[in-house]
């Protein structure tokens, strides 16, 4: 049974407003047991999807932030060397083989996100964030893990998944991912929400925001994103801005333009963008949505 609407509704309860395509993809994750690859610009809310999914299933969110040079020691497991050294020192004179057996035990193992994710009693949501920043070798390793869900540690043996986590991968597209990984995953391209959906997100997430103002903010944001900016503001920026406006007691954008102009710092994060969105430009934008 594939019930997209149920998933969309439950996401909405946690404050995430998903469109139909995303709800379908999330429903398919459970049905087909495939990871989901989310692609989109920074700030469209990729990471939020994972958080919301964890909230929906009332489970843990385990996050692996990828970066260049990420390797198994950071992502999978590492031995606790300090403790191992101490233990070896304490057993000085003992047989080398016994020492070895003693220090390569579970107690000396440090779990990193990927190992932790397959050893949870309740299936967690595993978020592999910005996979495009990791290098190709790691991507290949990840592909293997995602199909077998088992890890072999030479000193301990093979560890098989207790539960299969729901896996969400995100990519900003700074590097093209391999076809193998793309094929293994379900795919959804996230875009900036349209004004209507952004307004609903604002209403769900910002307490004390009235509907008319939310819609105005969302419409202005839609236009700001079309301006020639060096950093296009994401949904997080919109939320900050809305919270700031509510905090300053602004009721309508065209009511208190001074406050609007001052709080734009929440949205525009570089000097050039600030200069580009001059008072006149902002006035024009507000005029269009008022």
């Amino acid at each position: 049974m594939l019930d997209r609407q149920a998933i969309a509704d439950r996401l909405a309860e946690t404050g995430y407003v998903a469109d139909g395509g995303l709800a379908t993809a999330l429903a398919l994750m459970d049905l087909l047991k495939r990871p989901l690859l989310l692609e989109g610009e920074a700030g469209v809310g990729k990471t939020e999807v994972a958080k919301a999914l964890a909230a929906v299933h009332r489970t843990r969110l385990i996050r692996l932030q990828c970066h260049e040079g990420l390797d198994r020691a950071d992502a999978l497991y590492e031995w606790n060397y300090q403790r191992q050294l101490l233990a070896i020192k304490a057993r000085e004179g003992a047989d080398a083989r016994e020492s070895e057996a003693a220090v390569f035990q579970e107690a000396y193992l440090l779990e990193r996100p990927l190992l932790a994710a397959i050893r949870q009693p309740v299936a967690p949501v595993l978020l592999i964030d910005e996979i495009d920043r990791a290098d190709e070798a790691f991507e290949a390793f990840l592909l293997e893990l995602l199909s077998d869900f088992q890890v072999s540690i030479p000193e301990l043996g093979t560890i098989t998944a207790v539960t299969i986590p729901r896996v969400i991968l995100t990519s900003n597209n700074t590097r093209d991912l391999s076809d193998a990984l793309r094929r293994r995953c379900l795919y959804h391209a996230l875009d900036y929400p349209d004004a209507d959906r952004e307004a609903r997100i604002l209403i769900a997430r910002v307490p004390g925001l009235d509907t008319a103002l939310a819609l105005q903010i969302a419409r202005v944001m839609e236009r700001i994103r079309k301006e020639d900016l060096s950093k296009i503001p994401g949904v997080a920026e919109t939320l900050d801005w809305a919270a700031a406006l509510v905090g300053m007691g602004v009721g309508r954008l065209d009511g208190d333009r001074e406050a609007v102009f001052e709080t734009l710092a929440c949205v525009l994060k570089t000097r050039e963008d600030r200069a580009r969105m001059s008072r006149a430009v902002v006035e024009r934008l507000i005029g269009k949505v008022a």
Binding site: G21, T24, L31, R182
Partner: peptide, 27 residues
């Protein structure tokens, strides 16, 4: 094939959305 046999996926639009997530790999 499993999807086509899944209840709740009768409408073509729903199938299209599901297939899109499954078959697409890039924008």
């Amino acid at each position: 094939a499993r999807l086509l046999a899944t209840p709740g996926l009768e409408r073509p639009a729903a199938v299209r959305q599901a297939f899109r997530a499954l078959f697409c790999g890039r924008r």
